[in-house]
Design a protein around this nucleic acid. Structure first.
Length: 924
RNA sequence: GGGUGGUUAGCUCAGUUGGGAGAGCAUCGCCCUUACAAGGCGAGGGUCACUGGUUCGAGCCCAGUACCACCCACCA
């Protein structure tokens, strides 16, 4: 083995082997007695590439998948991608725009061909990245939401819902994106607070007697006003209710109505009502039977319903003109600055218009109810649990879902219209004609496609073959856990639950593990515009500074921002990013996956865990050097296990137990820490060191040496299996070398069983003995460290006041002690014998003396001991204070009080001894 | 306006039924000891955001305050 761990040289080749050998494949049915375990990937946009959030979630999913595979489950991790209607269409349109072609130049069919072509070219990015992450998903089942199978499922669901009256077509006010020229759902609109104005406009009464003042943030919509509303209890306007307004700039008269939606205290207490361009006004229009006047075109220009002078004007130009015209008429009361929430399309970024159109809707209430119940009654569990509240709140207030989009890329709605505009829904045109007995009349298919999330909602069962009755459905549904971010609970999770229950009668998954968001090390969201994005592949392979700068600033519109980002990047990564490898990155994600919502991703952690990989690597080198080609005690040969051997085996059992408990609760941070701690602090720092005296010493028998070699290699082999779900590559690479030494002939660690802990291997006596040994060794190292004595210099040690047990232990473990603490001679001080001037330490009641001649100066030792006394005195004060408080001794549980008493006793006896030692030193 | 999460060492974060404040990284000191300098050994470092309450005892429970982050909502 190379002296240092080098991820680049091992990872890709191993993945190739796994994939070629089809180790990731799931079976359609379970073997007898076998459980299934299934995770559905949240399909990433086929347009995209994986970001840190994906890498994080994939690490969790793969860890779970590998763990369960090793536990013996029939394990399926279903991969795939989403066609991402709007996003993908935009990307391809942008590409075409570079050649000055619009999609309309091509026409629908050719444009869709282009999208498919582009998907074939770039759609491999994600699966390639997933392979780099080590994702052990079943590639033979890779799915795409526009595949034939899934498209069939979409058709089936649409038709069934329509036939049950749960899908309908209606004219409503929708969120209209005037740039993309499509409706979008509520969820695709993001409202941000922006600085705007509140224009106060005078509306004269039709009888010329007076005027009202209305306040508005959108003056241009006044062209579509069909009423002015006041609060029914507002004394100021009581006498005006029922009268009419002469709407300025138009020739229309509109009524003054009363509605308690109006806030008396806001503005003037009068609201202009534009039912065709505002959601609230729409509602009020319904209540009061107001006419709806649409004044906008689909591109948000003023249309023919407005006075001629404004026709064809862009909405903001019209706003300007209208304000000027009001002012010219003396009808502009005032303009106040005003903060308001501006709704913008999450894809286009332009201001969304409430717009009156015909769209398709899913009637959601009947679907929401069972979906709500499934979480309430525990069929589906959120982890962490508190996300269920968010879910309840949304599901209890859910609106009908607008599912039609005026796009070309997506599942075209299976509806046909005859020349009278009558709509027929069916799986295809033939079916429709047959079913409705239409003969060969002219039919035109609906041009719209479905919201991307409509097909995503079917993902868990559609990928398993639904509506066909494949055994896979029975085997894997409900899936075990969904791993995803909270940002798509509404978009996706809730809709999967609704559709899953509706069409399969089963919940789609039993648990939902909601991961935190990955932010940068300062808690900022990672985004292209902030220039703080990290690419997971760059952490794996490393990247030169210049390449990173280029990557982060590429295609930036604003050169100043690009400059700033370049500067910051150079400062933060003066050397670029090192190649940490996949395992280090994955382990970092696991170690940071605690219950908190967001994760501030710190590259230093990755470096730390890269070092951890190196530690594992070198531990394996040590083990190999001492076992390869030697007798590792396979079979029935006699083996004698040392206390250290029994101790490390015992500790391993505890670690396995701890790991499994943590994973079962999705506490990957606890699991990762348990592994780290055991590997580094227990196995490497102590056990490997304890093995040296045995392996290299002359006073151990062949059976003892064999026992230690056996333990070295078996514990390592189990440890590798324990680590495998988190760090698949390094564990495989090392395991290949270690496995033969324990007599294993398996092809891959990923097909081996997960280590099982055994209570029979717990060894309390070994644990106590090693704990004692550690105390003594640390005490001596402490003296050495504090006194700055070179670690190579052997020290002679004297022991005093030991119990029989101390004496036995010292006798038995002398070899360990002298090697690990670098001691020369070890002797008991006979009673009455005078001790030489020494530095001292205590292990329980036993005193450890390190004679100082030529090593330590008195003053330094006194300083060291005084420091010790200060610490202990503080402790003594704390405890004795507590114990002298009658309230404590009376009311606290007996065990707690007893514990404090014995603690105090120990502290005081230690204090006495150290004080004694100090005075002895001083008297010399 | 309603809601959720957070505030613990210089940084990033753990802290499970209330009972001796922890880890990694960073810092300091000594060591290139035959697995590992991507390392070993040792050390320093915290008013657990603030205020009050419950309790013998609070990082943890309760009430309130401040700040940060996010989600939801129709004040034009």
């Amino acid at each position: 083995m190379d002296k240092a761990y080098d991820p680049q040289s091992i990872e890709q080749k191993l993945y190739q082997q796994w994939e070629n050998n089809q180790y990731f494949s799931a079976n359609a049915t379970n073997e007898v007695g076998q459980d299934s375990y299934c995770i559905m990937i949240p399909p990433p946009n086929v347009t995209g590439s994986l970001h840190m959030g994906h890498a994080f979630q994939h690490t969790i999913m793969d860890a779970l998948t590998r763990y369960h595979r090793m536990k013996g489950d029939n394990t399926l991790w279903q991969p795939g991608t989403d066609h991402a209607g709007i996003a993908t269409q935009m990307v391809v349109e942008r590409l075409l725009a570079a050649d000055n072609i619009s999609r309309h130049d091509l026409g629908r069919e050719k444009f869709i061909d282009k999208v498919w072509q582009w998907k074939e070219e770039s759609g491999g990015t994600i699966s390639h990245q997933m392979r780099r992450l080590g994702d052990s998903c079943d590639w033979q089942r890779e799915a795409f939401t526009m595949d034939q199978d899934l498209s069939n499922a979409v058709l089936e669901v649409f038709v069934q819902l329509y036939e049950e009256g749960l899908i309908y077509r209606g004219q409503r006010l929708v969120n209209w994106d005037p740039k993309l020229l499509t409706a979008v759902s509520d969820l695709e609109v993001e409202s941000e607070e922006e600085n705007g104005h509140l224009w106060h406009l005078r509306y004269p009464l039709a009888d010329g007697s007076d005027h009202l003042i209305v306040a508005t943030t959108r003056p241009e919509t006044m062209l579509g006003d069909t009423a002015v509303a006041v609060h029914p209890d507002d004394e100021r306007y009581q006498h005006l209710i029922g009268k009419t307004i002469k709407l300025p700039l138009t020739d229309r008269e509109i009524p003054i109505i009363a509605d308690d939606y109006v806030e008396k205290d806001f503005g003037s207490g009068c609201v202009k009502i534009t039912p065709a361009h505002d959601f609230n006004d729409y509602e009020m229009g319904q209540r009061h039977n107001l006419p709806m006047i649409n004044i906008l075109t689909e591109t948000a220009h003023i249309n023919g319903n407005a006075p001629e002078v404004y026709q064809g004007m862009e909405r903001y130009a019209a706003r300007q003109k209208i304000i000027e015209d009001f002012e010219a008429l003396g009808l502009l009361e005032k303009i106040d600055p005003h903060k308001l929430k501006v709704p913008r399309g999450d894809r286009s970024g332009v201001v969304i218009e409430p717009y009156l159109t015909d769209q398709w809707y899913v009637k959601i209430a009947p679907l929401a109810e069972p979906a709500l119940k499934a979480v309430k009654n525990g069929d589906i569990k959120f982890v962490p649990e508190n996300w269920s509240n968010t879910y309840y709140h949304w599901m209890e207030n859910i609106q009908d879902w607008c599912i039609s989009r005026q796009l070309w890329w997506g599942h075209q709605i299976p509806a046909w219209y005859d020349n009278e505009g009558k709509v027929y829904v069916g799986r295809n045109e033939e079916e429709v004609r047959e079913k409705y007995n239409l003969g060969d009349i002219e039919l035109k298919r609906d041009q719209d496609v479905l919201d991307t999330w409509f097909s995503s909602a079917l993902w868990p069962f559609a990928t398993l073959g639904w509506p066909e009755e494949k055994p896979d459905l029975e085997t894997f549904l409900p899936t075990n856990v969904l791993v995803t971010g909270f940002d798509i609970i509404f978009f996706w999770v809730a809709r999967m639950i609704m559709m899953g229950l509706k069409f399969t009668g089963k919940v789609p998954f039993k648990e939902i593990y909601i991961t935190g968001l990955i932010r940068d090390e300062q808690g900022q969201k990672m985004s292209k515009s902030k220039g703080n994005v990290l690419d997971p592949i760059d952490l794996i392979d490393g990247i030169e500074l210049e390449d990173l700068v280029t990557k982060r600033t590429y295609g930036m519109m604003n050169p100043q921002a690009a400059d700033k980002i370049a500067k910051r990047t150079r400062k933060q990564f003066p050397e670029g990013i090192a190649a940490y490898g996949t395992d280090a990155m994955r382990f970092t994600f696991c170690a940071m996956a605690s219950t908190s919502r967001d994760i501030n991703f710190d590259l230093n952690r990755v470096e730390g865990y890269r070092n951890f990989c190196n530690k594992i690597w070198n531990a394996a080198r040590y083990v190999l050097m001492n076992t390869e080609g030697q007798d590792t005690g396979l079979g029935d040969t006699e083996k004698i296990l040392s206390v250290a051997d029994r101790w490390i085996i015992s500790q391993l059992q505890n670690t396995i137990t701890e790991f499994e408990a943590a994973v079962s609760q999705y506490r990957f941070d606890i699991a990762a820490n348990a592994l780290y701690e055991f590997t580094w602090n227990t196995y490497c720092d102590w056990y490997l060191e304890l093995s040296k005296p045995i392996l290299y010493g002359e006073d151990y028998s062949v059976a003892e040496k064999r026992g230690t070699r056996h333990t070295l290699v078996t514990v390592l082999e189990q440890l590798l299996r324990l680590l495998h779900p988190f760090m698949p590559f390094i564990t495989e690479e090392v395991w290949q070398k270690i496995a033969p030494l324990v007599g294993k002939t398996g092809e891959s660690i990923m097909l081996e069983s997960f280590p099982a802990s055994s209570g029979a291997l717990l060894d309390q006596q070994a644990q106590d003995d090693i704990a004692w040994l550690q105390t003594v060794i640390v005490a001596i190292r402490n003296i050495r460290g504090e006194m700055n004595i070179a670690s190579g210099k052997p020290l002679n040690a004297l022991f005093k006041n030991g119990s029989d047990q101390d004496k036995a232990r010292l006798e038995n473990y002398k070899n360990f002690l002298s090697k690990l603490a670098k001691l020369g001679t070890i002797q008991w001080l006979a009673s009455g014998e005078e001790a030489p001037m020494s530095a001292t330490a205590l292990a329980g009641k036993m005193e450890i003396l390190i004679p100082m001649a030529g090593l330590i100066d008195v003053e330094q030792e006194v300083t060291r001991l005084t420091k010790e006394i200060e610490k202990l005195s503080k402790e003594q004060g704390r405890i004795s204070g507590k114990l002298s408080n009658a309230n404590f001794t009376d009311k606290a549980p007996e065990a707690v009080v007893a514990k404090e008493r014995s603690k105090l006793e120990e502290v005081e006896s230690t204090l006495t001894k150290i004080q004694q030692q100090i005075s002895e030193l001083k008297s010399l």
